[in-house]
């Protein structure tokens, strides 16, 4: 997935997407659908519904790419928000509350993902990510992937909000250091 013939810079990719070029959307799908689908699956926990939502997500990205403003952040952050919000909306439409992973379940998902993704180029990074302390990692995942608020996480996991916040912050700082090439 991550290995592409065409390599766009973020700027070129956005420009090509805004020009509605198929090659750019091909690249976007091949490059990001796995990460986005992962988020959708984590929220929905229903693979069939997840496929429908994933369709909606990508079509939404295609239709509203003109409204993306690079001044406000990276393209992926924008797309991830669309994926996360679409998935949460779908869950709510079904009249059920999003189910929060417990640590154990979440670890299972993470392991699954690792099995799915034997990406050679990122093996080293993966190892680094795994160094994130689990109690921090799950907080990041719950908030970043599943869209829980820090308050919700604090309540559900019975951890003080301040602790949730500081752990997440530390986790992100660690990530920043890991990925700072």
């Amino acid at each position: 997935m991550a290995t592409q013939k065409v390599k766009y810079s973020e700027e070129d990719l956005v420009a090509s997407l805004k020009r509605n070029e198929r090659a750019a959307f091909d690249y976007l799908y091949d490059h990001y659908s796995g990460a986005l689908f992962n988020v959708v699956c984590k929220v929905l926990k229903d693979s069939e519904r997840s496929e429908d939502v994933m369709q909606d997500v990508f079509l939404k990205i295609w239709k509203s790419i003109a409204s993306y403003n690079s001044e406000k952040g990276r393209l992926f952050t924008w797309m991830l928000n669309i994926a996360r919000n679409s998935a949460i909306d779908a869950v709510r439409a079904e009249g059920r509350a999003p189910i929060m992973d417990d640590i154990q379940e979440h670890s299972a998902w993470a392991d699954q993902s690792a099995v799915y993704q034997p990406s050679l180029s990122t093996l080293d990074l993966k190892a680094l990510v795994e160094k994130l302390r689990p109690e921090r990692k799950i907080l990041v995942d719950l908030v970043y992937f599943q869209g829980y608020t820090q308050e919700e996480v604090a309540e559900k996991l019975s951890i003080p909000l301040g602790t949730v916040k500081s752990r997440i912050r530390t986790a992100l700082q660690d990530l920043k250091i890991f990925f700072a090439v």
Partner: peptide, 20 residues
């Protein structure tokens, strides 16, 4: 902000679930 976003983006890329 961009560094944080990039870091989280890479983190997300490490957790992929390929769609069918």
């Amino acid at each position: 902000l961009l560094t944080l976003e990039a870091a989280l983006e890479k983190y997300a890329q490490e957790h992929q679930t390929p769609p069918p």
